[in-house]
């Protein structure tokens, strides 16, 4: 496979790259190749849907949550009024439920049809939370204080799993209370009216937790860490360099290095070598990445601002 620009520079001994800007903006494009597929198209589309719905839901919901804040009235005007914002919020919620069901169906089908089902449900390749995740969490703190090496993550570290299951938990809690508030007369046949007061509290706070977790913890872990700054587009382009993959998922190193010797796959098949992302894809991913974390950090700013109103 052809080396990309950065690899060529690296191969030709481009030193001091941090200062000269030779390092690609995308953390997943840094280091030794070849590129390895991490996320297939389905993952990326679902993640794109998640981004879209999360941002629209937060930006339509936050003015109501913090109706007293100075940014709320202009934001509501942007959406075209409270009723319109509410309608968009509900349509987006419906969309979120729809793609989540599609995703669950995909996961179930994948597990049922998998030949090596055990690999899906347990071990370094699995999304299922393990006792190892708790040990990794403790290990991470030990590493912070120089009392041990960095934990060795498998395909999904505990932060990836927290992002994922956090969304599952959020979807159940925010979605459930959201549907209650959407159809109060229907749910009011069985539930006392004050249940909607309680639902409002759960809905609003869980949304705040979700937004804060995403825009602080997830963003830092994925994009803003000093060793990844300014962004990591692996979820947009679907691929990262071998060095990046091993750095982030060291427990997979052997498998990855073995896979890297295979022929390049144009199709996004996990762990197979990938062609370098096109300049256009990189550009789009970078622009979107910056835009999204810009808005995300702005939302954190809005929440902090609103706390004082």
């Amino acid at each position: 496979m052809a080396m990309n620009e950065h690899e060529m520079r690296a191969a030709h001994g481009g030193a001091g790259h941090a200062a000269t800007g030779d390092v690609p903006l995308d953390a997943a494009q840094r280091g030794r190749g070849p590129y390895i597929w991490r996320f297939n198209l389905f993952h990326r589309v679902i993640h794109g849907f998640a981004i879209l719905s999360m941002y629209v839901l937060v930006l339509t919901g936050i003015p109501l949550r913090f109706a007293c804040a100075p940014f709320s009235a202009p934001l509501i005007r942007f959406w075209g009024g409270v009723e319109r914002a509410g309608l968009i919020h509900r349509w987006m919620a419906g969309f979120m439920v729809a793609y989540s069901l599609v995703h669950i169906g995909w996961v179930v089908r994948k597990i049922v049809k998998a030949k090596d089902r055990k690999r899906w449900l347990w071990g370094s390749n699995s999304m299922v939370p393990h006792p190892q995740d708790a040990r990794d969490f403790v290990q991470q703190f030990k590493w912070y204080f120089g009392k041990g090496p960095k934990p060795q993550f498998g395909r999904y570290g505990y932060l990836d799993k927290m992002d994922y299951f956090g969304e599952v938990w959020g979807l159940i809690l925010i979605g459930g209370t959201g549907f209650m508030l959407w159809f109060p007369e229907f749910f009011g046949r069985w539930l006392p009216g004050w249940a909607f007061n309680v639902a409002t509290v759960f809905h609003g706070y869980e949304a705040m937790i979700a937004a804060s977790f995403l825009f602080i913890v997830h963003f830092f872990n994925v994009h803003l860490r000093p060793d990844k700054f300014p962004l990591d587009a692996v979820m947009f382009t679907g691929r990262g360099t071998l060095e990046y993959m091993i750095e982030e998922h060291p427990q997979m190193a052997e498998e990855l290095q073995a896979a890297a010797r295979q022929p390049v796959s144009r199709q996004a098949v996990a762990d197979l070598p990938a062609p370098p992302p096109s300049r256009a894809a990189t550009l789009v991913a970078t622009v979107f990445g910056f835009l999204l974390w810009g808005i995300g950090l702005a939302i954190i700013g809005m929440i902090l601002w609103a706390v004082f109103c």
């Binding site: 840094r30 280091g31 030794r32 991470q140 703190f141 590493w143 912070y144 204080f145 090496p149 960095k150 060795q152 830092f220 872990n221 860490r225 000093p226 060793d227 060095e243 091993i246 750095e247 060291p250 427990q251 190193a253 052997e254």
Partner: peptide, 25 residues
Amino acid sequence: LWWVRLTIDKRRGGGHGQHAGDPRG
């Protein structure tokens, strides 16, 4: 703490790639 750790490592001349080729599988 992550930010502090990485910043300290960077100052000490470590940084990106420190674990590459060091799989503790």
